[in-house]
Each structure stands twice: as structure tokens, then as C-alpha cells.
Design a protein around this nucleic acid. Sequence first.
DNA 1: GCCCATTGTATGCGGGCGCATATAACGCGT
DNA 2: ACGCGTTATATGCGCCCGCATACAATGGGC
Lengths: 171, 171
Amino acid sequence: MAEPVRNGAGDEPLDAQLDGWRSLVAVYQSVLHDVVRALENDAGLDSGVFSALAYLARAEPRGRMRLSELLELMYPRYSQPGLSRLVQRMEADGLVGRHADPDDGRATVLQMTRAGRVRFARADVIYTDAVRDHFGRHLPAAEARTLRNALDAILRARATSVSPSRTVRAR
Amino acid sequence: MAEPVRNGAGDEPLDAQLDGWRSLVAVYQSVLHDVVRALENDAGLDSGVFSALAYLARAEPRGRMRLSELLELMYPRYSQPGLSRLVQRMEADGLVGRHADPDDGRATVLQMTRAGRVRFARADVIYTDAVRDHFGRHLPAAEARTLRNALDAILRARATSVSPSRTVRAR
DNA sequence: GCCCATTGTATGCGGGCGCATATAACGCGT
DNA sequence: ACGCGTTATATGCGCCCGCATACAATGGGC
């Protein structure tokens, strides 16, 4: 969001970090827009469903996961009610099953269906190709590694510092 | 969106660009969430209103801009109907005026109000501080410049390559 | 064994978004 | 001056989101 007041030439105190953030925002929005379009048009999946399937595909054992675990992975992209309805739609589309957890009567266990696996496998190819085409293609591998290192360092630093309400349930 | 299948250790063919994209997505979502929260809580502005005000504040002459010009700046974050309603809300909140363009009967000219300027000035401080606190603080200035250069190169490359439907009005 | 605070999930509600479409003004060709 | 394709904006509609809240199950304290 919001790329206001870019330091074009001889502006203000010149803030390298702020400029970096603005460039990051611009790239993210531009690339994501095209990638999401590719997912929807070529794979028939919206980005939320795709993300959920991606996490489920990695889940052990075999595509099973608690709804609450998935929520932690998808937060803050989805709120708890938002995820609740997302998986309802996914169940309606036959991509996942929702079963009562035998160990905890409150919990719901998600189970990827075979159809879900197939849809995800196809979509993953679309996604990967789209990211390469719209992003990776323009970034030399060496710079990509540098970029990743810098960004991962930020993630680690943020995880460490006591950022408020990193916990899903707060207040 | 979607950070599936991260190359943790000895995974697949190892794709530096894809990993970079995933890190970018993770940082963007995490940081943006907190920045938007700060804007809403401390400045009482949602991110769309803030972005629009930021562009208007830079407009010459003095906070005037055509709706269609603003649309190009906000695209693809907002669609044309989305922006239409966004500025309607902004007008209702007294942040901008909407006047018929004397030179073109179809067009609407936006004019930032004094209240809009005040609200934006306050929000801009909140925004800048939040970005520094959640992002810039964790990124050395040298790395920030490297980051910006790599990302801006991607933006330029994307603008050059004939990416389909970069124009607002397509199809 | 009974409370009761906590945890896991679902739902009522209001609001914002995008798509398709409508409406109105423009301007060029004739 | 008329027609018609184009451009600028607005609106009907359906969908999805988050917030607040409801509800059910859990487990530790006593």
C-alpha cells in the first residue's frame, strides 16, 4: 500500500529504509496482481485457497492439520472467522474434508482430499511459473540470494522483538 | 500471499528467485499488517484513504487531481469502481472536494480540503514512524539501498516488458 | 465432581471490493 | 449538425472480509 512522497532527487533527509519499503510495496503489489490473475484464470483457485492447500500439502501426516494450526500459518492474512469460512468453501468444493478431532471435541481436523491434491499440484505449477515470469526473470540469482538474506534477517528481527499482538488471540 | 514449500534445507532444484519472492511476501504481509494497524488506530485512516491523500498532497497545483489520474496511480490496488467509492467516502468525511471539470464534462476534479491536509500530515508521521519501527529499524542503510536498487530494477524491467493489461482499461 | 476461565470454531452483521453494466460527455469523420 | 466509437465516472450486485459475539468443549483448582 501507499507509496507516497518518493525521494526522487534532492528531497528531505533522505531515508534509505523508507525508500526500500516503498520499492518493496510497489514490487509486491505489481507482481502479486499478475500472479493472482494467473492463479485464478489458469488454475481456477483464488489465492486464499491456494495458500491453504499449500500448507496442507506440506502437513504431516499426509495433508492433515488442525484448523487452529492452519490459522497460525495463515495469520495475519486471514482472521479466525475468515479462515473458518474459507475452509467451508473449500469443503464445499471438495478440496478438503472437515472432521471432528477425536482428541479434542472442540477442534476440527482438515484432511486434504485427492481432488484437493490434484488441484494444488496443477496450481503450484501455474504459481511457480507466474512468479518466475513476473519476478524471478528480472532478478539475477546472486541478487535474489542477497535479497532473501536481507528480508529473512528482518523477519527474524521482528520475530525476536516483542512486537505486540503477534499472538493470534490478543486483547 | 502464499508462502508454500519453502526451501528449508536440501530441497528440490533450489530456486533462489522463488525463495526471494517468498521472503518478500512474508515481510510485506507481516510489516504491512502492523503499519496499517498503526494508521487506523493512531490516525483514524484506512490505508486506501491514506494512499489517496498521499498522492493528492503531491499533486500540482495544490492538491488538485483528476479522478482518472488518481486511478492510474492507485492501480492495480484499486479498481475504477473501487476508487470511485473511495473518494465518495473521502468527500463524506470532508477530506476532499469533488467538482465537475470545467474543461471536460465527464471528469471529476478532486481538491484536497484543509481538513484533508491536516489529517494527512498527521497520518504521514504515524506512517513513517511505523515503517521505521517495523521495517527500517531492522535493515542497515547500506542493505536498504541494495534492496531498493534490486527492486527498482525489477519494476523497470516489468514496465518495459510487454506485460499484458498494464493499462488500466483493457479487454 | 463442580466451577470457571480458557480454547477452538462458527455465525450475525456491516462494510468494502471487483465485475458487469449503465450513463453521460466527448470528438472525429462525414 | 449527426452519428458513433471512445472515455470518465457511477451504480447494481454478489461475494468475502473482519469484528463482535455466541457456543461448545476442555482442564486445572478446590
